[in-house]
């Protein structure tokens, strides 16, 4: 009944390393519906980063079909991919990836610049977003003047401000202490309540457990996981 937002069919990704083809993703089928909160759980080297790159349109699969929000991604060129990333994906990185020479307001405005939103509207939307995140009094601060948790909230603001189809989080709590990490997870739950689709990639099953659905990935093979005892 729910709309399929993301539809992967028979995805294969191989890398040529030292003259040898190495299969990183092995015939993966993966669907996400609108409004889901999914964790992709796997140890390092399992292929989860590659999975994230393909979901995030940073990379294209070697073979297979990937339809995101009704668009076939597999054959897109760099420019089209850039547009898709800007419009459909909100990235949240482990190490926040904020531009340290820019204020947090400017950081949140950045993706809006690339969507060619006029200056005034851009300011307005970025400011509103940061106010919602409780950072309304710190708009002119630089990232290094904020705590880790605050920085991750800035990064989340930046991801959400474009109203993307998917929030794609890569180890979002990896650089945070447990308490702050917990707060970020609560924020994710809240965003999900509002109807946002979230895909979170992690190696930590306790973090993964915050999601409503967990898929496991191991040696390039994906399996629907049980929520408990991963």
């Amino acid at each position: 009944m729910a709309e399929k937002l993301l539809e992967m069919t028979d995805i294969v990704k191989t890398y040529n390393i030292a003259g040898e083809d190495q299969v990183v993703l092995n015939h993966i089928d993966f669907d996400v519906e609108r409004g889901e909160f999914v964790s992709i759980l796997g140890p390092s080297g399992s292929g989860k980063s590659t999975m994230m790159n393909i979901i995030g349109c940073l990379d294209v699969p070697t073979s297979g079909r990937y339809i995101l929000h009704g668009k076939e991604i597999a054959n897109m060129d760099q420019i089209e991919l850039a547009h898709i990333r800007n419009k459909e994906i909100g990235f949240i990185f482990q190490s926040f990836q904020l531009l340290k020479r820019n204020t947090i307001l400017e950081n949140v405005e950045l993706p809006l610049i690339y969507s060619k939103i006029p200056t005034r509207e851009r300011h307005e939307r970025a400011r509103e977003m940061l106010e919602r995140m409780g950072l309304g009094n710190k708009l002119d601060f630089y990232p290094n003047q904020l705590s880790g948790g605050q920085q991750q909230r800035v990064a989340i603001s930046r991801a959400v401000v474009t109203q993307p189809s998917i929030l794609l989080a890569d180890e979002p709590t990896g650089a945070l202490d447990q308490k702050t990490g917990q707060q970020v997870m609560e924020l994710f739950a809240e965003l999900n309540e509002e109807g946002r689709t979230i895909i979170m990639i992690t190696h930590d099953k306790h973090i993964a457990a915050h999601a409503k659905r967990i898929v496991k990935i191991l040696d390039g093979v994906m399996s629907e996981g049980v929520t408990e005892d991963a």
Binding site: G56, A82, R85, Q97, L99, Y114, R158
Partner: peptide
């Protein structure tokens, strides 16, 4: 490099 990567991830075209 990282900054460039980030900008691209956020949707900056190569030309930009």
């Amino acid at each position: 490099t990282v900054e460039i990567g980030l900008r691209k991830a956020l949707g900056a075209e190569p030309r930009l």
